[in-house]
Measured scan of single mutants.
Amino acid sequence: MADQLTEEQIAEFKEAFSLFDKDGDGTITTKELGTVMRSLGQNPTEAELQDMINEVDADGNGTIDFPEFLTMMARKMKDTDSEEEIREAFRVFDKDGNGYISAAELRHVMTNLGEKLTDEEVDEMIREADIDGDGQVNYEEFVQMMTAK
C-alpha cells in the first residue's frame, strides 16, 4: 500500500514521523504519540494510545517504525480525509473560533508540534493556502489545501 505514495508524500511523512519521534530513535512510543496528540489539544487515554499503536504495529514490538507509519498514512489517505476530520483539524488551528486561521494561530500550532518556523515560513504557508488574498485561511481554503492532490 505504501508503494502507491509519491516521493514527495514519503518525504512529508518522514518529516511528520520525526515530529512524533521525539528522541530520534526511529520508533514512536505511546508516550511520544501522547505528547504530540496533547500538543494538538487531544486528550487520549493510555489505552487509546496503545490501541492506536497496536493498529499499525505490524511486528508487534509495541512501537511504530517508519515503514509501519507509512502504511498507516497510506491507509488513512485511501479513506481520504472525511469532512469531519478536516473540520476537526481546522478547529485545532482556529484557536479563537472566528472561522479563520491567522498567521499567529498557525505559528502557535506548529510551535506546539515542535516545528520552529520563521515568520517568513509561516507567512508563506498562509499565502499558499490563501486563495482570496485576505491574509488568513478560511474553512473553504483549508479544505482545498487539505484535499489538493
Rank of each mutant, 00 (worst) to 15 (best):
D51T: 06
L70V: 12
K116N: 12
T71M: 15
G62D: 11
A11Y: 00
E85V: 09
D119G: 12
F93A: 06
K95D: 01
D81G: 13
E105A: 14
E32S: 15
S102R: 11
M72W: 11
R38N: 00
F93T: 14
A89S: 14
L106F: 08
V122W: 04
F142Y: 11
L113Y: 04
I53S: 06
D132A: 10
A129H: 05
V109R: 10
D130A: 03
E128N: 00
V122T: 15
T30I: 13
E105W: 09
R91G: 02
E140W: 07
F142Q: 05
N61H: 01
D134T: 14
E121N: 01
T63D: 03
A148I: 06
T80M: 13
K116F: 02
D96V: 09
L70A: 07
A104Y: 04
D132L: 00
E128D: 14
L40I: 15
A104V: 11
I64Q: 06
A89Y: 04
A58D: 10
L106Y: 06
R127H: 03
Q50K: 13
F66G: 01
G97L: 00
D132S: 15
D65A: 11
Y139N: 13
T27F: 03
S102A: 05
R75N: 01
F20T: 02
D81R: 12
K95G: 04
E120S: 14
D79Q: 07
Q9A: 00
E140I: 11
G26A: 14
R75T: 02
Y100Q: 15
K22I: 12
L40H: 15
A47D: 09
V109C: 09
A47C: 05
E7N: 01
T111P: 07
L113W: 01
D81L: 05
L117A: 09
T80Q: 11
L117E: 06
E8M: 06
G99D: 13
N138G: 08
D94I: 03
Q136E: 12
M73R: 11
V56P: 01
Y139G: 00
N98H: 10
T27L: 02
M77A: 15
D132K: 07
D25W: 07
A11L: 08
G60V: 03
F93W: 09
K31Q: 12
V36S: 07
H108G: 01
T35Y: 01
M52E: 06
E121F: 04
M72D: 08
G97Q: 01
Q9G: 09
S18T: 10
G99F: 05
G60H: 15
F69L: 11
D25N: 13
E32N: 09
E32Q: 02
T27V: 07
D21W: 13
E48H: 03
S82Y: 03
L5Q: 09
I64Y: 13
V92K: 08
K149P: 12
E120G: 13
E115C: 05
I101S: 03
V143T: 00
E85G: 11
E141L: 00
D134R: 04
T147I: 13
E68C: 10
A47N: 05
S82H: 14
Y100R: 10
M146S: 04
D51I: 08
D79H: 09
D132I: 00
E140L: 02
I10S: 11
M72R: 08
E115T: 03
M146E: 05
M145L: 06
F93M: 04
E121A: 03
D94P: 01
F66Q: 05
D119L: 08
I131F: 14
L70F: 06
Y100A: 07
F90D: 10
E88A: 08
L113H: 01
A58Q: 01
E84F: 09
K14W: 08
I101D: 11
V137T: 09
R87L: 09
D96T: 14
N43E: 04
T27P: 10
D81P: 01
T45L: 11
L33K: 00
Q50G: 05
S39I: 12
M146N: 01
K149M: 07
V109L: 00
I53P: 12
L33V: 07
G24S: 11
E7V: 11
K31F: 07
L70R: 14
S102Y: 00
F13K: 00
E121G: 10
E7Q: 11
L113C: 12
Q9T: 12
Q136I: 07
P67A: 11
D51A: 11
N138T: 08
T71P: 14
V122N: 00
D119A: 15
E128A: 14
L19P: 11
E88G: 11
Y139L: 00
E120V: 12
L19T: 05
K95L: 03
K149L: 08
D3C: 04
M146P: 12
L117N: 02
A58E: 14
M77K: 07
D23C: 01
V122S: 15
Y100N: 13
M37E: 01
D123E: 09
I101M: 02
F142G: 01
M145P: 09
G24C: 10
M37T: 11
G62P: 01
Q42R: 13
V92G: 09
T63V: 09
E68D: 10
R91H: 07
E7P: 02
V143H: 04
E141Q: 02
Q4D: 06
D51Q: 08
M77S: 14
G60R: 09
M77Y: 09
E124R: 11
D119I: 02
E48C: 07
G135K: 06
E120L: 10
R87P: 09
M73K: 14
K95Q: 13
S82V: 09
T63L: 06
E121Y: 10
Q9D: 06
L117W: 00
L19M: 08
E12M: 02
E8H: 08
M146A: 07
T6L: 09
T71W: 06
R127D: 03
I126T: 11
K95P: 01
S82M: 07
V137I: 12
T45V: 07
G41D: 13
Q144K: 07
E46N: 00
